[in-house]
Amino acid sequence: MTCEGCVKDVSTTLSKLDGIKKVEANLKDQLVFVEGTAPPSSIVTAIQNTGRDAILRGSGTTDSSAVCILETHSTTVANKIRGLARMVQVSPNMTLVDLTINGLSSGKYYATIREAGDISRGAESTGSIWESLKNKVLGSDATAPVEKEPRGIFGTVDVDNEGRGNVFLDRPVAVWELIGRSMVVGKSKEGPFQREDENTLVGVIARSAGVWDNDKMVCSCSGKNVWQERQEQVSQGMA
Rank of each mutant, 00 (worst) to 15 (best):
E124D: 11
A116T: 11
T95P: 01
K136V: 11
L96S: 01
M87E: 06
G122L: 08
Y109R: 08
G122H: 06
K108H: 02
E147R: 12
E131Y: 09
T100Q: 13
V146L: 11
L138H: 01
G122N: 06
S105N: 15
P150Y: 08
E131V: 01
L96D: 10
S120I: 06
T95L: 12
K108G: 01
T95Y: 03
G139V: 06
G122C: 03
G127V: 10
Q89I: 09
K148M: 10
N93C: 01
T100Y: 09
T143M: 14
A111Q: 06
R151A: 01
I101R: 00
A111P: 00
G139C: 02
S106P: 00
T95N: 05
S105Q: 12
S125C: 10
P92V: 09
S132M: 11
A123S: 08
R121A: 10
I129E: 07
A123K: 05
E115L: 13
V88G: 04
G103P: 02
P145D: 13
D141W: 08
P145K: 15
I129T: 09
E131K: 15
L133P: 00
L138P: 00
S125N: 02
T126M: 05
L133N: 12
L104M: 11
A123R: 02
Y110S: 08
A116D: 08
R114P: 01
I119P: 04
P150W: 11
V137L: 11
